[in-house]
Design a protein around this nucleic acid. Sequence first.
DNA 1: CTGAAAGCGCTAACAT
DNA 2: ATGTTAGCGCTTTCAG
Lengths: 340, 340
Amino acid sequence: MGRQRPGTPTLEEVAALAGVGRGTVSRVINNAAGVKDSTRRAVQRAIAELGYVPNLAARSLAGRRADAVALVMTEPDWRKFGEPFFSEVVRAVGDALADTKVQLLLTLVRTDADRRRFVEYARGGRVDGVLLMSVHAEDTLPDMLADAGLPTVMLGRRSADESVTYVDADNAGGARSAVTHLLSHGRSVIATITGPLDMYVARCRLRGYREALKRAGIGIRPAWVVEGDFTEESGRRAMAEIIEREPEVDAVLAASDSMAVGALDVLRAAGRRVPEDVAVIGFDDFLRTQHTSPRLTTVRQPLEEIGRTMVRLLLEQMEDSAVAWRHVILRTELVLRDSA
Amino acid sequence: MGRQRPGTPTLEEVAALAGVGRGTVSRVINNAAGVKDSTRRAVQRAIAELGYVPNLAARSLAGRRADAVALVMTEPDWRKFGEPFFSEVVRAVGDALADTKVQLLLTLVRTDADRRRFVEYARGGRVDGVLLMSVHAEDTLPDMLADAGLPTVMLGRRSADESVTYVDADNAGGARSAVTHLLSHGRSVIATITGPLDMYVARCRLRGYREALKRAGIGIRPAWVVEGDFTEESGRRAMAEIIEREPEVDAVLAASDSMAVGALDVLRAAGRRVPEDVAVIGFDDFLRTQHTSPRLTTVRQPLEEIGRTMVRLLLEQMEDSAVAWRHVILRTELVLRDSA
DNA sequence: CTGAAAGCGCTAACAT
DNA sequence: ATGTTAGCGCTTTCAG
């Protein structure tokens, strides 16, 4: 069994070589003030000579932070892991953490065994905080972590009255403004491909869609609403179904960029002129639809800002464990790129 | 700063409550043999009552493993992170680790700052071993880790004489057999979309392609070889270039599934009948091309087996740090799904 | 400004 | 079978 190799130099040996006490070496390592410059240099030389690397277990134990946070994706379906949405979140969070000394650890939690293992890991103090993404409505992992007193921040929420700190986009508002925009451009048979409806985010987007049509006095027919799961493949299936059941459809609101890509595929295959006949709207920031069809109307989620905000809230919780539960809802941005 | 909340019960308190010594509690926690059943139960009750969770830093420090391994993706271009290839590897490795107590930590290393931070993390003993994927030829991270005595296993290698333990597929052989197959089915103007040529894996696949054509006595024209970077988008660009420079092309070897998908897009847009006119070959296991075009010839990498093997080699190194450097090269499988 | 000393919570070796 | 003890390597008072 591994661990730091035996023979790894310790702080004590560094101290001996530098001819100082352990405390001094510790101060130098941690860039603490109050060390004579010459002493500091001597210690640094010793560190270099010995190739000393601090033992992180000892450091954690001795009472500080773990200097690491986890970014957890709880998703039974590992395929979703490849969705651009996740790489975007990872990047945004990574960027927000770039010039800290905090190590970002990605973790995939698929099964209950994974869940248990991770909770032990986190509660065991290997991370100072946890960021969660893609949480389904019935998932209790966030509570398990938050109840254990771990700083925890979710991307999105599980329900209207989420009890764990979260950052979310204005999903209903985004969907509403998109549909309103479509209506104002003469579309009237507007379908939607939703996300998985066990996720609050998907429900909100659907609600926004409903509200916009209702305000316009348009009755929604059942065939207009098809559930997807955020993946491209589900977008394909959903779009095929919509076309079949409602050939008159002249606009579609897709609840994710990937689904929009799939939908566009099908539309093209069906010989529809896209986006002249049909408008598609994606929600992600990294818009693959940009490449496919550069003239769509999109609702941009501010992923960059979401990542930054999540990290900020987490760090604040870490600094001061007295901070109360909080939530932040960020505005989405309607980007008009359609041909109308 | 965070860490395990103050007030967290310790092993000592559990021992007190259960009316036993610390050693006994430790044994129970670690499922060690030699504890009377009644005692064990008493301890477990105390653990439950107190909500005790072992402090992992203390455990690591006291001389065991960290019970965690890192799966590192060194890739400056974060977009690649979303490639299905990576989610597949993550899944395969995750599966291989599923019923161990080892926590899998994914880490993204993009910048040199990331690299430094991760090396400190790993050398600091927070993980017992490191798995690396997508390593570019000039990357020294594997050496830094291996030289530090950390069990390290790479997926693929950086050059012909790799010095770090690795698991690889028979890339040249796979490419060769694919091209040979195409030749035997009457194709003769065979182009290839390579991976980034600063990666050995891409070079090998290109070499296999070259060898097959050479054996058939066919001279390769410069326009037949276009470099991609494994992404779908690069496949699109490359295919467009090939069609333009060599309209007679009647088969294409794509060095990745994603690039094949992009290439197929372009071929369709160009009005080619796929795969009647053009055959495309992907290398990944999770074949998106399956959905797009179910009748292609593909070279399947045994990703499942690669993941299992990497984990096995890593665990072996962790058990016994005396094990020498090793490498394993796995066979690829030619899957014929073309119409010929 | 710097050295010495007291733990952090656990495992493992040694007693009993 | 179980209690006791000696550290693991570091941070952090507390003296000096």
